[in-house]
């Protein structure tokens, strides 16, 4: 691996932090602390800082709960299915957050539909949808039962840009790109 190429690429894309590996609770805490202090150093506008922070929390915890999912780990083709990639960069006035993780093929259609449904809703409908799921949705013992994606779309006011790359019979790679503006 040419580390200088890698450096150049990160520099070009204004990457503040990137990580590939197992997502643990301790790691999430560290990433959030690093990004928070970086934004403090850049004297980021408080409102944008808050928005970036809470969107990061949702994205990282989505990854974390996937790592935790035994259905992802058991019988997996390789250990890679337990790891994820995370990147955050800043270009001019907006932040770019990209996450990537393996997902079982049988979950792709459901997740895709969920995101398409969210992307199709105008802001005021998104708010109603959020309240409806909050009040009626089943809470899993891991999280908000699908509220995370709605919250991200609601806070950023932008569509969820996603991609699924087929890997093999069992897995695809799921990439999510979130843009956060003032």
């Amino acid at each position: 691996m040419d580390i200088h190429d890698f450096y150049d690429k990160m520099d070009r894309d204004n990457i503040l932090l990137s990580f590939k590996g197992d997502i643990t609770a301790e790691l999430l805490t560290s990433i959030l602390q690093i990004i928070e202090s970086k934004m403090d150093n850049m004297q980021e506008e408080p409102k944008l800082k808050k928005k970036v922070y809470i969107v990061l929390v949702e994205l990282l915890q989505n990854l974390y709960h996937h790592m935790d999912d035994p259905s992802m780990a058991s019988g997996s083709a390789n250990d890679a299915s337990r790891t994820a990639i995370f990147m955050i960069g800043k270009e001019q006035q907006h932040y770019n957050v990209i996450t990537g993780n393996y997902i079982k093929n049988d979950k792709v259609t459901g997740l895709k539909k969920k995101m398409d449904d969210i992307n199709a809703l105008p802001p005021e409908k998104l708010k109603e949808h959020y309240k409806m799921i909050l009040n009626n949705g089943q809470m899993s013992d891991k999280g908000g039962g699908g509220l995370g994606m709605i919250d991200i779309a609601r806070r950023t006011g932008k569509p969820l840009f996603y991609q699924f790359t087929p890997i093999n019979d069992a897995y695809s790679f799921f990439t999510l790109n979130i843009v956060i503006e003032q």
Binding site: I54, E58, Q61, L134, G143, G144, G148
Partner: peptide
Amino acid sequence: EYFNTASSKCIL
């Protein structure tokens, strides 16, 4: 100051 969506259910 902040709460995540997992907490939002618990607060409810």
